[in-house]
Design a protein around this nucleic acid. Structure first.
Length: 571
RNA sequence: GGCCCGUUCGUCUAGGGGUUAGGACGUCAGAUUUUCAUUCUGGUAGCAGGGGUUCGAUUCCCCUACGGGCUACCA
């Protein structure tokens, strides 16, 4: 029975390395139909940061990492917050004290600091270990009655692990294989602090045992304390149920030195956090992948491939595919530098993978944009549009107009929705993020008012106005006599006017192409020049999707209006 | 400093005693196009160094170098 835990400390936001650790735990749990536990390790009361717990849970939720047992979910090993388990640890410390695996230490933090300084001045490093403990104030050196007197006097003390001397510990790590360490190189770690709280080491081992954790999957920064933990299992007599260990390689900064850390914040030019973190003390906001515009599934995909691969060339994985393919054995040994460029590429791939409708929803949610050139109002989501339309259908205020100016309620019909979807289909391949789409597609929603000087200089020859006039004349018969807002006889609210009958409400792009290209050819005009000029009129510059696609979406009336305006403005 | 872990293109990585060392991002070039992108095709670039073991090492072992982690009454 696989039981794994993600055990963050609520000392601030989770960074992407932490999220990856959570992800690997989750993938492993799901792969083996096991249980995913979220345990909050808040034994350092001094470093507790308000809001951190909520942040952690929200982050995991956004990533689609589901928790089976935790502070919010409950479970058979409750409670899941270590500060709520405080009473449990004392008895285990006592157990070690009784069987001789631990001892009381009365040296104050100040005393030890002074000793450390002294060692440093001699360019040595102090370590509370088998060598030095014989000359320090602890229950190993002090007479029994003195120890009792001190304990009863209420003086501060800690409980330390009594590390045996010159004993070879052989450990197995799923990722690293066999690791050997001699106990003589390890110090006597504090297990129980003077404030009555356990340290990470004690709480971690006790809880993993009590919660019947089968696999401890955590960052490599914990590898140096694995020998201690293994010795603790031995000291408690829990060797036969000791979990298996897997120490994940670290995520490194893209450039420079060191592992990625919370303090990197936004300094690196990309987020290090999954979602925005609002530092309440400094009032600073650190950006997260969610708010930076990353899709949650793309973010998970990026993280999964940082230090793991399934041995194939496959790079795009859904969560289900990750669960299927995941194994700890295929996690690499070496740390990986995070590459923000590739992260963007991943997001672009997900953009392409998602349906136009899905992106349109997201786009509308993020951008309250004007509905259509010449028509005031706001785009709303499909659901909202449906609701509003229903209000209009039954309400008395519906005046037969689909767009009601600056009224508080703006009905948007399916026609507008379809138009946005169509626009998305044209521009999504040009965008890495949904937030890029507006800059790629704004001209579908508002007419340009300025025109790119370089293009004018290059292509706006004296005969251009008359050429454009001819093209306008060509399109005029296609233009409806009235715009939908002033629907004439036979055109009622909700109707689509004839010119909007196809392709999201217009002539097909191909039909414009036939028409205009035919005109250009028959009049011996310069194709490149005319096309670029048309684009300039419609978009204001020389970028964007195909001119005929743009025309098809704008409709003849709007195309003519934009041409007129450009001629008027540029002259 | 001590202890531990690691090292394949700039980056993420596959591979593994005999391979033209494979893929992806980036980058460069070409193609397509009415523009900008996208897309497609192609190019660029790598086994840290030195010793072994071996008929043969990038692959196994050792050393060195480099990188990383830990070295708190923090996790």
């Amino acid at each position: 029975m696989v039981r794994v835990r993600f055990a963050p400390s609520p000392t601030g936001p989770l960074h992407m390395g932490g999220v990856r650790t959570a992800l690997f735990n989750y993938l492993f749990a799901r792969k083996h139909q096991g249980t995913m536990i979220l345990r909050i390790e808040d034994t350092d009361q001094g470093r507790f940061v308000p809001g951190a717990e909520e942040y952690i849970m929200e982050s995991l939720e956004w990533c689609g990492i589901q928790i089976d047992e935790g502070i919010r979910e409950g479970g058979k090993s409750e409670p899941y917050r270590q500060s709520d388990r405080k009473e449990i640890y004392k008895q285990y410390a006592d157990q070690l004290l009784e069987n001789g695996w631990a001892y009381y230490s009365f040296d104050s933090a100040e005393d030890l600091d002074a000793i450390r300084k002294d060692y440093e001045s001699r360019k040595e490093t102090f370590s509370y270990d088998t060598q030095t403990r014989t000359s320090l104030r602890n229950s190993l050196t002090l007479p029994a009655d003195e120890v009792n007197r001190l304990l009863n006097s209420g003086v501060n003390y800690v409980v330390r692990f009594r590390m045996p001397e010159n004993h070879e510990i052989v450990m197995q790590d799923i990722i690293r294989g066999e690791v050997r360490v001699n106990t003589s190189t390890i110090d006597d770690k504090v297990l129980f602090k003077s404030d009555g709280m356990p340290t990470y080491h004690l709480a971690n081992v006790v809880d993993d045992h009590l919660m019947e954790i089968s696999h401890v999957i955590r960052g490599e920064e914990w590898l140096p304390s694995l020998p201690l933990h293994v010795m603790l299992y031995k000291a408690f007599g829990w060797t036969d149920t000791m979990p298996q260990f897997a120490h994940l390689p670290l995520i490194l900064k893209p450039s420079g030195n060191g592992k990625l850390s919370k303090r990197d914040g936004d300094k690196l030019g990309f987020p290090v956090f999954p979602i925005n973190w609002n530092n309440q003390e400094t009032n600073e906001i650190y950006s997260g992948y969610r708010e930076a515009g990353y899709f949650n599934d793309a973010f998970v995909n990026i993280l999964a491939l940082l230090g793991w691969n399934d041995g194939t060339d496959k790079e795009i994985y859904s969560m289900d595919e990750l669960i299927q393919a995941f194994s700890l054995e295929r996690v690499g040994k070496s740390g990986s530098r995070f590459d923000p460029e590739k992260a963007k590429w991943f997001n672009h791939q997900y953009m392409l993978l998602k349906s136009d409708e899905e992106i349109a929803e997201e786009f509308i949610k993020n951008h309250k944009v004007p509905a259509f050139a010449g028509m005031t109002g706001a785009l709303v989501t499909q659901a909202e549009a449906g609701a509003r339309l229903a209000v209009n259908e039954s309400g008395t205020k519906a005046k037969g107009s689909r767009f009601r100016g600056n009224d508080s309620v703006t009905a948007v019909t399916g026609f507008e929705w379809e138009r946005v979807v169509k626009i998305i289909s044209l521009v999504k391949e040009r965008a890495e993020f949904v937030k890029d789409i507006w800059s790629q597609a704004w001209f579908f929603f508002e007419a340009p008012t300025t025109y790119d000087e370089t293009t004018i200089k290059k292509r706006w020859t004296p005969e251009i106005p008359s050429i454009l006039k001819d093209i306008s004349a060509l399109l005029l018969p296609l233009s409806p006599p009235v715009i939908p807002a002033k629907a004439g006889p036979g055109l009622r609210r909700g109707d689509k006017c004839s010119c909007h009958s196809r392709e999201g409400g217009n002539l097909l792009a191909a039909e414009y192409e036939t028409l205009i290209k035919g005109h250009i050819t028959s009049h011996n005009l310069n194709m490149g020049n005319v096309m670029n000029i048309l684009r300039l009129c419609l978009v204001g510059s020389s970028v964007g999707p195909g001119v005929f696609d743009i025309m098809a979406l704008l409709g003849p009336a709007e195309v003519i209006a934009r041409i007129d305006r450009a001629v008027q403005t540029i002259g």
